[in-house]
Design a protein around this nucleic acid. Structure first.
Lengths: 340, 340
DNA sequence: TTGTATGCGTTATCAA
DNA sequence: TTGATAACGCATACAA
């Protein structure tokens, strides 16, 4: 049933090496012979067997993308960007998520060993000893997304969250006269949350804004929990004339709705800003002032780096930092420079 | 660098056949020999080469998932479900989207040929001559998601949209006293839109509800365009005491916000219901009455069917219909039976 | 410019 | 219970 290179060779009255040459180094084969071979190929609908080819070339043209989770727009956009670029570069994309409890070693072993994938892009939301050990074992081209791991040599794609947070909070402070800012983040161990919280502490300190322990909240990046928190806190926040910096748009939406439910309005009674600029950001009323994170570009960049390294394994490790952009809408209560 | 079966054999002082037997048919090998081999394997960190294995077995343990698009929660949930199940069953998942303009033939040829994937799950949002021709060419196990294609023998996973629409609209009519219902769908060629529109026409006809041409709108499943339409229409709809049936949650959210922007409130002035029960459904105020579509189950079911067929190619084609469920929340203005 | 022969790492067949 | 050996489909060094 499957048509092999031999079948093509027979039909074109040549040897398999000639067929192979037509397929690869097309130049050194006679015009006429090539034509015969080519028509034989299309007549038979032949296409080379990936396994045989992989066995010889030690290349699968498959790239692996490992994500911490497959929930939410953030990840799906990363996938989308990665997939698009991979196809442009002639690669296939294999996707997996690190299932809860699993530190991903099982997965990465499964995917990365055996030579199945030519390279691996891994996004980690939490760096610990186990993930580090896992990553150390990977011997194929590796790029780490959104966080880099000390002691492991690899390329990485990060987003410049710091600049984003700074721009966002400065805007809140300078243009919106915020005198107090509440932080609503994800888990304390989450890389992004850590970075955003650090930047938050810096900016507030610089501006002489006091931050008490009760100003920092660690949730789970979800709308519902943010809404619940909001229901309990918005009145107090509003009374203290605070603004809310939520570490993602969904939580910001939850806070806004909680304020509304409490009879308060955003931004008048309680300014709220988000992060990521996902679709949610334009689905709230008022629409969210937030920071645009180039999600799909992250995926694409990861694939780029991977392919570069595959082609040139000696290239020194690169750390690519993607820029973020402040997007001012209505939820912060300031006249906007950028409208979008 | 890569350690082969021969290396293991050498270290364990056996032949490669014995190693192979330890790896596969473990029973017919001597206890002690096996132990030697096993420790050699772990010492060397050996794992079989996928390509060599694939060449022999004609199995890659890779499944392909082809989606019309990678945007939105619907697709990402399908991916999530498929990925989880695939891993449970010991398969890897390769993902691709049909890029605009491409009818997918290029892609499916790339992915489905060559023997790279053992099976292919394809979701199509539009059936035409080209997609049909493309699918006909696929000679490996195939399952079509969300719509089946006449004349092509394959398994399929569909969602019972009709029942969902009927339940939803009946609820609107019987429990919410809707006397007129506006339909806001996706493109006219979209499979889901067609099905939902058909069911809509049926139910309204049964209930003696008049449907004029201006009651049916074809948008693009996005919040923004629905909002825009809403801005123009909500007053008229409210005046005519109509309810809005949006073919997905995002558009429903857009309509609700448009009503709000026009000074109208949902559900009092304009009841609105959605479809899919994505996260958006609980992020609107009021929360959406909608129909739960088992998105991740679709992905999982597709993988199940694929694996079943791979194991038993003779099995007659199966059409699996997944149930939907009416989820009553506040946007329809009725006392809810189910709260969620 | 083309053909022959070898090897890639496995599994499977058959003999020992 | 084990081992030698032949495929699997391809790329490539070498010979013609």
């Amino acid at each position: 049933m499957p048509v092999s290179i031999q079948d093509v060779a027979d039909r074109a009255n040549v040897s398999i090496s000639t067929v192979s040459r037509v397929l690869n180094r097309r130049n050194i084969v006679n015009q006429e012979t090539r034509k015969r071979v080519e028509s034989a190929i299309s007549d038979l609908g032949y296409s080379p067997n990936v396994f045989a080819r992989g066995l010889m070339l030690r290349k699968s043209h498959i790239l692996g993308l490992v994500l911490p989770d497959l929930h939410g727009e953030f990840y799906s956009e990363v996938i989308r960007g990665a997939n698009l670029r991979a196809r442009e570069l002639g690669y296939n994309l294999m996707i997996s998520s690190i299932v809860a409890k699993d530190d991903g070693s099982e997965l990465m072993a499964a995917v990365g060993d055996h030579g199945l994938v030519d390279g691996l892009a891994v996004m980690i939301s939490e760096v610990n000893a186990r993930t580090r050990a896992t990553l150390e074992k990977i011997k194929i081209p590796l790029v780490v997304l959104d966080g880099d791991v000390d002691g492991v040599k690899h390329d990485s794609v990060v987003i410049d969250q710091r600049t984003g947070v700074v721009a966002l909070l400065r805007h809140l402070i300078e243009d919106c006269q915020a005198r107090r800012i509440v932080f609503v983040g994800g888990l304390e161990t989450n890389i992004d949350t850590i970075e955003r919280l650090d930047a938050y502490r810096e900016v507030t300190a610089d501006a002489g804004i006091e931050v008490t322990a009760s100003d920092v909240h660690h949730l789970d990046y979800q709308y519902d929990t943010a809404f619940e928190l909001g229901v309990k806190k918005v009145r107090e926040w509003a009374r203290r004339r605070a603004a809310v910096f939520a570490a993602n748009d969904e939580m910001a939406a939850g806070i806004i709705d909680a304020a509304l439910a409490a009879g308060l309005s955003t931004p008048d009674d309680l300014p709220v800003v988000g992060f990521d600029d996902t679709r949610v950001a334009t689905m709230t009323r008022p629409r969210l002032t937030t920071v645009r994170v180039p999600m799909s570009s992250m995926g694409a960049a990861a694939i780029d780096l991977l392919c570069q390294r595959i082609e040139n394994p000696k290239r020194p490790a690169v750390k690519l930092s993607l820029e973020t952009e402040l997007v001012v809408r209505e939820s912060c209560g300031a006249p906007s420079a950028i409208t979008s």
